[in-house]
């Protein structure tokens, strides 16, 4: 039962990836694309956690944590670029 649930969850998360990718491709503006990237990062964390449960391995959490952090830093840097036209002042 658990493995069925995990399979369905994989499908749903994959569909979520497709949605975010569509938004990334079609834009129409820069903040939309940044938001899509941010969503992709969060979805990746979800996917890694699912993979951890599926494989029964706790190794993936470090990766999930790092991706969550990098995603946040990346989003902030990109927003800062839009706001100021510069990242490091």
């Amino acid at each position: 039962m658990l493995s069925t649930a995990v399979s369905i969850a994989f499908l749903l998360v994959a569909a979520a990836f497709v949605m975010a990718l569509l938004r990334l491709l079609y834009g129409p503006d820069q903040p939309d694309r940044i938001l899509a990237l941010d969503t992709l990062y969060v979805n990746t964390v979800a996917l890694l956690v699912l993979l951890g449960i599926h494989l029964g391995s706790a190794l993936y959490f470090e990766a999930a944590l790092l991706i969550a952090m990098m995603g946040f830093v990346g989003t902030v840097a990109l927003c800062k670029y839009l706001l100021r036209g510069d990242i490091i002042e």
Binding site: L2, V6, A9, L12, T39, V42, A46
Partner: peptide
């Protein structure tokens, strides 16, 4: 196992709905 499956499905569903909102 039921609780776990429910949590996983709810989580995946919300992840999907969030991205659906982004697209829609």
């Amino acid at each position: 196992e039921i609780i776990l499956s429910a949590l996983i499905l709810i989580g995946a569903l919300f992840t999907f709905i969030g991205s659906l909102g982004l697209a829609r």
